[in-house]
Write a protein that binds this DNA or RNA. Structure first.
Lengths: 111, 111
DNA sequence: TCCCTGTTTCGATGGATGTCGATACAGACG
DNA sequence: CGTCTGTATCGACATCCATCGAAACAGGGA
């Protein structure tokens, strides 16, 4: 499913339709795992806006395949993008997707 | 676990610590289920800022216990609060929690 | 070419989770 | 008090998911 949907009115606007909810949920689900949330944070806060997988694996007491799996989930949720440069693979966040979620949760500033 | 933690600097600020991530993940996990995301949206967008369970059950093709279970997950994640008034139970969102998440995902406006 | 390292995929497994029916609890009303 | 309705809990079950080791793939160098 291509997440090329236009953006999101806040939750408070109108009830989320079934399809919209089904499209948004995977993003939250991806961030709903502590390791993945930390991975996302590590990538987002990394200098240069990107982080090498080789730098991420060492942070956790988890096997390489497990880290790779979590990165795949984040990638398929559209939250990060990966690029191979030579031997190493670099990941960076997808800012528009994070902004989309942030906007969704923005309750009306002042009622 | 009391979610009385201080607020959140954006993801881009510094890497999320293990505890902070463990505290935040349940919120995302709760919203990572389409039915729960719609429930949250239904409550958030409902007139008066609160919604009766009796109005929520009919929206979905799911049993009462299942809806009750999802509301419990949202409640335990701190995203909604419930109050019984007579026969019916009313739920409303916890604005500060949603704002917390929204802020967390707010990437620095301009780098 | 062969090997070495970094990363991903595969297959298996134990534990978490969404769903249901049955049941229990809470409050209103005769 | 008994009963009816709305909501929550319980127990069970099927499915999903995080994790691992083994193996495959990618690229760089000897």
């Amino acid at each position: 499913m291509t997440p090329s949907d236009e953006c999101c009115s806040p939750l408070t606007g109108e009830p989320l339709g079934e399809e919209r909810a089904a499209a948004l949920a995977p993003m939250f689900k991806a961030m709903g795992e502590p390791v993945r949330l930390r991975l996302l944070s590590l990538i987002a806060s990394h200098q240069g806006g990107e982080a090498c997988v080789c730098e991420l694996t060492g942070v956790f007491d988890l096997s390489g395949p497990t880290i790779s799996h979590h990165l795949k989930v984040l990638r398929e949720a559209g939250l990060i993008t990966g690029e191979r440069r030579g031997t190493w693979v670099y990941y960076r966040v997808a800012p528009e997707r994070l902004a989309q979620v942030s906007t969704l949760l923005d309750l009306a500033p002042a009622t």
